[in-house]
Design a protein around this nucleic acid. Sequence first.
DNA 1: CTATACCGTGAAAACGTTTTCACAACAATT
DNA 2: AATTGTTGTGAAAACGTTTTCACGGTATAG
Lengths: 349, 349
Amino acid sequence: MKPAVTIRQIARESGVSVSTVSRVINGSAPVSEDVRRRVERAIEKYAYAPSGFARGLVSRRSMIIGVIMPDITNPYFTAMFREISLAAQRAGYSVLLFNTGFSAATAGETTRNELEAFKVMQEKGADGVLVVGGQADLVRLRPEYRRGLEDMANRVPVVALGNPVDGSRCQFMERERGQGIYMAVEHLFSLGHRRIAFVGGETDVAITERRLGAYGDALAALGLPYDRNLVSTSDYYAPDGWRAADRLIRQGTAFTAVMAMNDGVALGAYRALADHGLRVPEDVSVISCDQFFDADYFTPRLTALNQHNELLGQAVISALLARMRGDAQSRPLKPRPELVVRESCRRIS
Amino acid sequence: MKPAVTIRQIARESGVSVSTVSRVINGSAPVSEDVRRRVERAIEKYAYAPSGFARGLVSRRSMIIGVIMPDITNPYFTAMFREISLAAQRAGYSVLLFNTGFSAATAGETTRNELEAFKVMQEKGADGVLVVGGQADLVRLRPEYRRGLEDMANRVPVVALGNPVDGSRCQFMERERGQGIYMAVEHLFSLGHRRIAFVGGETDVAITERRLGAYGDALAALGLPYDRNLVSTSDYYAPDGWRAADRLIRQGTAFTAVMAMNDGVALGAYRALADHGLRVPEDVSVISCDQFFDADYFTPRLTALNQHNELLGQAVISALLARMRGDAQSRPLKPRPELVVRESCRRIS
DNA sequence: CTATACCGTGAAAACGTTTTCACAACAATT
DNA sequence: AATTGTTGTGAAAACGTTTTCACGGTATAG
C-alpha cells in the first residue's frame, strides 16, 4: 500500500506553508484566490484527504456519531437507522454502528457487549452517541450498565431511546406511551370484539410493558376484564409470533382478535391461525401495533398502527445534533400513531 | 463535558512513566506484576480509554472497518451486515457504515454519495473497506467511480461484492453465478410448468443480469423458448413485486409459475395474483430466488432458494480480514444455494 | 569471575494536523 | 502624515499516543 500523502507535500507542491493549506481546506481564514487555486489543484492531483487522526487530535472532534443498537436485523431498528444515517451524513458526520446483539433474554451475557460499545465510542472519540433500545429500554438497568452509560454521558452528548432514568446525564427519549394501543383496542371493540389477545414482545422491556399497560387501561376504560391468559409474549419476529399465537390456541383460550406487537409477529400469527384452520379475518381479526414495510402486501392486507418510526429516527438524531451544538433542549416532536385500516379486521355479531 | 483523561495522568497516578502505561495497555512488552496492577487500578479508577486519534496517528491503524452499502433497509444487506459487524467486532474492529442510497435508477445522483463514502473511509483511516453492491454491482461502472475505487484500493485493502473488474486493485467477490436459478427452473419444469415468468430485480445490475442469464440458459437447456414478455423487472421490494406481477397479468402474458427475485418481491407477487383472483399455488406457482427471513411464515409457505447470505457475509468479511493481515488470497468459500421446497409450487398437468 | 543475554523501565522522537502568534503589506481613517 | 485596521501569510506549539533507543540490574553461560 502507498504511503499516505500529507499536508506537507501538498504545501510543498503548491509553494505555500502548511498553515495556508489548512486554511484552504477548512476555510478557517481568508486566502488569496490565486493560492487557493494552486492548493486545490495539488489536492486534486494527489487525491489528498486530511488525516482524521491528526485532525481529531488537535481539534477534538471526530465528525463521527456513534449508534448503539441491539439488532440491526430488526426492521424497526433498520428503519430508524436509515433516517439516522441520512441525517448524520447530511450534517457532515459519519456513523459508527455497534450492533450489540442484546436481548432481554440474554441480558446477562450481552451486557458486556453494550459496555464494550460505550468504550469503543469513547476511544474513537465519537462527537455524540445514540443509544437505541437494548438495555436502555429495560424496565430495570443493571448497575454496571447504568454506570457505563453515565461515564459516557459525562464526556460526550448522549441521547438514549428507551426507558427514562432519573438524574441521568443523558437525554432520554421515549418511543411512545402506548397511545396507539388505545386506538387499536377501540377499533376492535367497535367491531364487536370482546376477547382481544395480545401477542409478542418481551416482558421486562419498557416498550412492551408500556403497551401492555395501555392495553390493560384501554380494556378497563371499555369495561372489559383483563385476562392474563390472553397475553402471550415471546419476542419480536415472525417465529415468535407463531409461537405465541400457537401457544394461545393450544391452551384453549377463547379470543376473536389478536393484537400483534408488529408486522413480523402478525405474520407469524397469521401462519399459526392458518395452521389451526382459522381464517383471517373471518374467524379471527388481526391488527399490528407497529407497521414496518409490507403490511399492505400481506394477504389479507394487515390493519396496523403506523407509529411513524422514520419520524422517530429523525427526532432522535436531530435531538442529538441539537445537543451537540449545545442548543437548548428543544421539545422533540413525538410522532402521533395512526391507525391504518385494511382488511384483517372484521365486524362480528 | 469533562476533559478527557490522558495517559500521562494515569502514569502520574501510578508512579510510572508513560511508556510503561502504554506497555500495560497493549501488552507490547513485559511489565512487572506489581506495576501492572497499579496501572490497571488507575485506569479503572478514571475510566480511562486511550485516544484513538493519538493511537492511530502513530500506529497507523484505526481498528475501524468501513462498510459501504446502498440501502441497509434491504433485508439482504441487513443480513450480510449483521454477519460482517459480528465478525469485525470479534476481531477487535469497529464498523463505520456508510449508507449511500444508491440505486441503479438514480445512479446519476447517487454516485456522488459513493465517492463521498470513499473519501470518508480514507479520512477516518479505515484499516479495510468492504464495498457491498451499489455501483460495484453494475454491469458498467462510471469512470469517476472506477477511479475513486482504485484510489482507495491503492491505500487500503478493499474487498468488493459485485461485478468483477479486470485489473482492479480491489478484490472482487461474486455474489453468485446463478446456479440456484437452474435448480429453481428445473424444479418448476419437473412439476410440469412450461411458461415461467421472472419477476423483480433491476436491469443493468449484475446480479439481476446474471440471474436472468441463468434463467435463459436453464430454459434453453430444457428446450423451452425464451419469451421476453415473461420477464418483468422493477426493483427489490414488495411494491416492486406487486407492480411487476400486475404488469405481467395486465399485459395478458400466459404463465403458470413466477420466479421472484426475493421474498419481498414474492410477497408483492402473491398480492398481485390475489388481486386478480389467482390463487397460489392452485392457479400459479411462486418461487423466490433469494430467501430472507420469513418465507416459512408466508401463506402459503414460500418455496425458495436459500442463497445463504449469512455465509456470504461471513465470507466477505473474512476475505477482508485475511487481506488486511496480508494473507495469501485464500479461495473463499462460495455458499451453495439450496432449494427449500415448501407449499407455493404445485404440479400441473 | 567475566562475558553475555534478557528483563523492566524511562526519555524522547515521531505521527499529521489545527491553532495561536507574529508580522508584513496595504487600505482606511483621523 | 500618523494611526489604526484588515488581509494574507509563515513559524512553531500543541494534541496523546506508540515506538525506538538507551541503560541499569539480574540471571545464565563459559
